[in-house]
């Protein structure tokens, strides 16, 4: 069922964030920073935008989401559990032996995961293949692909961009999680990515810039993207790494580190407070 109420979506996004913290804390490993930064975008996609049915995870005509930045698996799992693809209790097993919730998403183990990802730079190519196939089959599917900003330092991303543009893939919507931080620091300093917008424009994309934490803007931008014909869209979403947990915000250090007990309690307390406010 589609959720249209903004406050309701904000509440779900906070619940998704609580799920992320629970997963990473229980696993004592994982990637909280880049998971928290895409919580709002994923919430809007799964609860408001995508043509999906959690009871039919293999429906051939469903929309697809490829989480190319697969290390943000805690966010994807948390959204999928909240949506009802699997029991929320399973989030406690994240990254543990015997669990289907692998460190990086495995399409053969988790209902709702549309592509196995984890090795950066590869998800966009798979998304291009899906978008071409949907056109060949006249299936009318939308393909969403979430990239990290550090991830686009991979050359394969630009190979895929070329193909998306050449094949006029207007059913492909890429979302760039532009939190400006990667493991070793600021994206501009580590890899030298400048003028992201111009780069994608020159590759023939429809480029849209938004605040990736404003639910209203996120809904609007997807609506605009759907109306674009003849070319792929990229949404450059300005985000904050660690968003929602103040001591994690804008810190590269929280890219791939689990909170200790004290930090966990602080984070949950803060998120619970936001939940009450909403």
């Amino acid at each position: 069922m589609k959720v249209t109420n903004i406050e309701a979506l904000e509440k779900i996004a906070t619940e998704v964030r609580i799920g992320i913290i629970e997963e990473v804390y229980n696993a004592k490993s994982g990637h909280p920073g880049g998971s928290l930064s895409i919580a709002d975008i994923l919430t809007v996609l799964y609860f408001n935008q995508m043509n999906i049915d959690e009871k039919k995870p293999n429906d051939p005509n469903r929309d697809r989401l490829v989480l190319s930045k697969g290390h943000a698996s805690p966010a994807l799992y948390s959204v999928l559990a909240r949506k009802g693809y699997f029991d929320k209790e399973l989030l406690q097993t994240f990254r543990k032996i015997g669990s289907n919730l692998q460190g990086h998403p495995d399409m053969n183990k988790v209902p709702g995961v549309d592509m196995t990802t984890g090795s950066l730079g590869q998800g966009l190519s798979a998304s291009v293949g899906m978008a071409i196939a949907s056109k060949m089959n006249k299936a009318g599917c939308k393909i969403y692909c979430i990239l990290g900003d550090g991830e686009i330092e991979e050359g394969q991303i630009w190979e895929a961009c070329m193909a998306a543009s050449k094949n006029n893939l207007d059913n492909l919507c890429v979302i760039l999680d532009n939190n400006n931080l990667q493991i070793d620091g600021e994206v501009e300093k580590v890899g030298g990515l400048n003028n992201i917008t111009e780069k994608f424009l020159s590759f023939g994309f429809n480029v849209l810039n938004i605040n990736g934490h404003d639910i209203n803007s996120i809904i609007d931008v997807f609506t605009t993207a759907k109306q674009t014909k003849g070319k792929p869209t990229i949404i450059i979403a300005k985000t904050i790494k660690g968003k929602g947990v103040s001591f994690m915000e804008n810190k590269a250090d929280w890219h791939g580190k689990a909170p200790n007990e004290e930090e966990y309690n602080l984070a949950i307390e803060e998120l619970n407070k936001s939940l009450l406010k909403e």
Partner: peptide, 9 residues
Amino acid sequence: GIAAGLSTF
């Protein structure tokens, strides 16, 4: 990668 995506359809 494109081949992988095509095969999922």
